[in-house]
Structure formats: C-alpha cells, structure tokens
C-alpha cells in the first residue's frame, strides 16, 4: 500500500504596523497595532477589509488617505511586509 503525503503550504502572511490618530484612534482604542494580511493586498483593499468591522473607518471611506512609511500612498499601492500604514483623516493643523 502506498501512501501519499499531502503537502499544503499555508500562504505566508505579511505583518503591517497600523497607526491610528485623532478620531480613529479614539474609536479604535489604540494608536498602533500589528495586523497580518495576505501578500499583494493594496491600500484600498486594506481599508475595505478593516472597514468591515470598524464602522468609524467605513464612515471615512471616501475621505481617509493612507500613508505608507510616512509618505502618502496611492490607493493601488501593494503593501509589503513591515510597512507602517497610517490612516489620515482630513487634517486640521494650524
């Protein structure tokens, strides 16, 4: 009798450092957190994913900008392992 060893490779996840500020930090209850997600996810997809269970972010869907590693990022930018991702609601400095 022969046996076949089934080999499954779990997709490797990437780890992001999420940063929250102002109204989003208050609602989230934290200013930073680690978040794992599959490779190839874009900024826009990350917002959609998190918005599913973070209603305040969903409210800001059309206004929030993402900064990746402290630079504003295009919605289509693919996120990389170790990226620092900040959610920038409309700013009001000055």
């Amino acid at each position: 009798m022969s046996s076949v060893t089934e080999s499954r490779t779990e997709p490797r996840l990437i780890t992001l450092e999420l940063k929250w500020f102002s109204v989003l930090a208050e609602q989230r209850g934290t200013r930073k957190e680690s978040f794992q997600i599959e490779p190839g996810v874009t900024c826009s997809e990350l917002i959609d994913r998190l918005s599913a269970d973070f209603l305040m972010l969903k409210q800001y869907r059309d206004y929030v900008r993402l900064a990746v590693n402290r630079e504003y990022a295009n919605p289509g930018l693919k996120l990389q392992d170790g990226d620092e991702v900040a959610f920038i609601t409309p700013v009001s400095g000055g």
Binding site: S22, S92, G93
Partner: peptide, 23 residues
C-alpha cells in the same frame, strides 16, 4: 492645512456641548 498630519479637537464651553475633532 492640506497635507500635514496634525488634527485639532475643539472643546466647547457650553454645558453638554463636549468636544469634537475638527472636520
């Protein structure tokens, strides 16, 4: 005012008016 990630929260003086993040 367009691009620098700084936010202000206004605290209001009236009773029960509380505070609100600008914008």
């Amino acid at each position: 005012k367009k691009d620098v990630p700084i936010w202000k929260k206004e605290f209001f003086g009236g009773e029960s008016e509380g505070a609100k993040w600008k914008g």
